[in-house]
């Protein structure tokens, strides 16, 4: 059995290392060793989210987590995928209030999203939100990064048409309301910005 000694490591390192190891492993058992309660809890949460079975025992103040991965792993991956949120971006500003602040916060939000561990499954840009995915948008780079990382980017065609910027779309693809409804209804969690 493979061993991963994470004792002495600060969070979230044990979680990241366990995740990498489990993803690289086709099947078999992995023993993860951590030295504190928080790391034990966080690693356990990760294993549960991946749909795998595990056991924990304590020995000489260390927690030993034994994880079993069988070849059914791929099904769990789909399940994990569907838990990623769908994000509806309805404006080019983040939050209501001052527009300048809203624009700055949107830049900050999209940048932070590129660094987040859990990425959204889909991002839907509607109404004023479509201004973020066109030529000259100041957040184009963050949105392109998200797309490269596997996030589906959709812009509402009616909206691009309304603002007369259909030819300026620079990231993602054009979609219609039927797809928007489907994406939102099949998501376990939709976040509206």
């Amino acid at each position: 059995m493979k061993k991963l000694d994470c004792s002495g490591l600060a969070c979230p390192k044990p979680v990241i290392m366990t995740k990498k190891e489990l993803e690289a492993m086709e099947s078999g058992e992995l023993e993860v060793i951590v030295d504190n309660d928080a790391a034990k809890e966080n690693v356990s949460k990760l294993i549960k989210s991946m749909g795998l079975n595990y056991e924990v025992f304590e020995k000489e103040k260390l927690f030993h987590i034994i994880i079993k991965k069988d070849k059914l792993g791929c099904e769990c991956y789909i399940e994990q995928n569907s838990e990623r949120p769908v994000i509806l971006v309805g404006s080019d500003k983040f939050g209501l209030g001052d527009d300048k602040l809203g624009a700055a916060l949107m830049k900050s939000y999209l940048y932070a999203l590129t660094e987040a561990e859990i990425k959204p499954k889909t991002m839907l840009f509607v109404n004023g939100g479509v201004k973020l995915v066109i030529e000259g948008s100041e957040v184009l780079e963050s949105i392109k990064t998200l797309e490269e990382m596997g996030v589906e980017i959709f812009a509402c065609g009616t909206c691009l048409d309304f603002y007369n910027i259909k030819d300026k779309l620079s990231v993602g693809s054009i979609t219609n309301m039927y797809t928007i409804v489907e994406k939102m209804n099949s998501a376990s969690n939709t976040i509206k910005l």
């Binding site: 700055a104 830049k107 900050s108 939000y109 940048y111 932070a112 780079e141 963050s142």
Partner: peptide, 10 residues
């Protein structure tokens, strides 16, 4: 205005 590439980040 100065044309310096930058990003607003948290």
């Amino acid at each position: 205005n100065e044309g310096i590439y930058h990003q607003v980040i948290p």
